[in-house]
Simulated assay, not measured.
Amino acid sequence: MSAPPVYRRILLKLSGEALMGEADYGIDPKVIGRLAEEIIEVRRDGVEIGVVIGGGNIFRGEGLAAAGMDRVTGDHMGMLATVINALAMADAIEKRGGYARVMSAIPIHDVAEDFIRRRAIRHIEKGRIALFAAGTGNPFFTTDSAAALRAIEIGADILFKATKVDGVYSADPAKHANAERFETLTYDQVIERKLAVMDTAAIALCRDHHMPLRIYDMTVPGNLGRIVRGEPIGTLVRDP
């Protein structure tokens, strides 16, 4: 028999790139299906879940701006890409027997509810998986910042960031064989060492509201459930 969950409520941050699998663009149905199954399994264990998904598999505002597009326009396109991803995840969850609600920071009533904090908490308390789309609704803020913000707003116990690496390293492990992987870090260590965890605004928001953050490898099947049950997988960022 598996151990019981150690968290009551979590916020899961998925990168848009993670949904691509081995493809160069878009959504891999097998990847999003497996992630949906893991989310449903954790929900059935009694954990309340909110999810923020990035849009980098479709559009990334910062990248579009670097190519010459107006930054605000690019960021709005990136926000809409996250709505596409959230709708895809909601579909995958519901096809597997779960219940999901997409809530958007940008009004888009035909496909998603507006994000209203009390309504979001109500959905989560009723056992629905709340998918928070369109970032914060503002340009110049990443979906990392949106994840930190939503985690604090819904009263999550912890913020999980699902990536393609097994934690935080002192340098890029693909380029530096001697890169050190950290078991734990403080928020200030992440900022001072300029470690590629989340953007500085998101880390500062977590620090100021004492929101612990765990970075883990989502490509390993079952990792989400193991972490929820207390296994020290990946890197934990927390107060000193």
Rank of each mutant, 00 (worst) to 15 (best):
V51R: 12
A177N: 09
R43N: 13
S104A: 13
A179V: 11
K161S: 08
A146N: 10
I32F: 02
T184K: 15
P4S: 12
H76V: 04
V42Y: 03
G135W: 06
P240T: 00
G26C: 08
M77Y: 08
E37V: 01
G54D: 09
R8T: 14
T184H: 12
F59Y: 15
K126F: 07
A88M: 10
V31H: 06
I84T: 12
T163Q: 08
G234Q: 03
R207L: 04
G74C: 10
M89V: 09
R43M: 03
G68K: 11
D91E: 14
G16T: 01
V51W: 10
M20L: 11
I203K: 02
D70Q: 09
D144K: 07
S15W: 08
G54V: 10
V83F: 02
T82C: 02
G33Q: 06
V190D: 05
D188H: 14
K126M: 13
S104I: 02
T219D: 06
S2F: 08
A202D: 07
P107N: 07
E180Q: 14
G127H: 09
G98I: 05
I233E: 06
R101C: 01
G155Q: 12
V52W: 06
G33W: 01
T184E: 15
V31C: 04
L149M: 15
H109M: 00
G225A: 08
T219G: 00
L224T: 04
N223H: 07
L195P: 06
L205F: 09
G55P: 00
V102A: 06
P221R: 08
K194A: 11
D144G: 07
R181S: 01
G222S: 05
A23S: 14
P5T: 13
L149P: 01
D208I: 07
A204K: 11
S170E: 11
